[in-house]
C-alpha cells in the first residue's frame, strides 16, 4: 500500500513539477523539422552533461553499413524533471529515436521521442508532448 501511495505521489509530483528545459540554442538554427528521422540502434555512448544530453547510436543504413549517429536531448535537469536520470539509458541499450535531422545533413539529430527496446517504454525526450499547458503540433 505504501509502495502504491509512493508511486501515485511520484506520478503526481512528476506531473506537477514537469518543468520544461529550453534549448540553449535555437532549434531552427541547428535542426530541420521538415527532415524527420526514425533511427533504431545500439547506444555506444551517453554524455549526461549540460547544456544538452547527447547519446550516440550505431545504426545500420539501407546498404547494411553501420553508421554512428549523435542525438541531442534536453538538459539533464529538464530531463530529470520529466522522469529521466543518468542511468535511464546505458551503453548497449537498443533504442528507437524519432526526431529531426541536422540542417547540415550530418548524422546528428534532435530527439523528440526515445523508446527503449528493452522495456518497450516510450520516453519523452526534449518534447513538450504530454506536458501541462502544451498542445500538440
Amino acid at each position: 500500500m505504501m509502495m502504491r501511495i509512493s508511486k501515485i505521489c511520484l506520478s503526481l509530483t512528476l506531473f506537477v513539477t514537469a518543468v520544461p528545459a529550453l534549448a540553449h540554442h535555437s532549434f531552427a538554427a541547428e535542426f530541420d523539422a521538415s527532415k524527420p528521422v526514425k533511427l533504431t540502434g545500439s547506444v555506444t555512448k551517453v554524455e549526461w552533461e549540460n547544456p544538452h544530453v547527447w547519446f550516440y547510436i550505431d545504426v545500420k543504413d539501407p546498404s547494411g553499413k553501420t553508421v554512428n549517429w549523435g542525438v541531442e536531448m534536453g538538459s539533464p535537469n529538464g530531463l530529470m524533471r520529466v522522469g529521466w536520470d543518468r542511468k535511464t539509458m546505458k551503453t548497449g541499450d537498443v533504442v528507437t529515436v524519432e526526431g529531426s535531422r541536422a540542417k547540415d545533413d550530418s548524422n546528428n539529430a534532435n530527439a523528440r521521442v526515445v523508446t527503449l527496446a528493452s522495456s518497450g517504454k516510450r520516453l519523452f525526450a526534449a518534447s513538450s508532448q504530454g506536458q501541462p499547458g502544451q498542445g500538440q503540433q
Partner: peptide, 12 residues
C-alpha cells in the same frame, strides 16, 4: 515562432 519548434523542443 522561428526559434523553437515546440513539438521538438520544450517551450518557455
Amino acid at each position: 515562432n522561428k526559434f523553437i519548434d515546440c513539438g521538438t523542443e520544450i517551450g518557455g
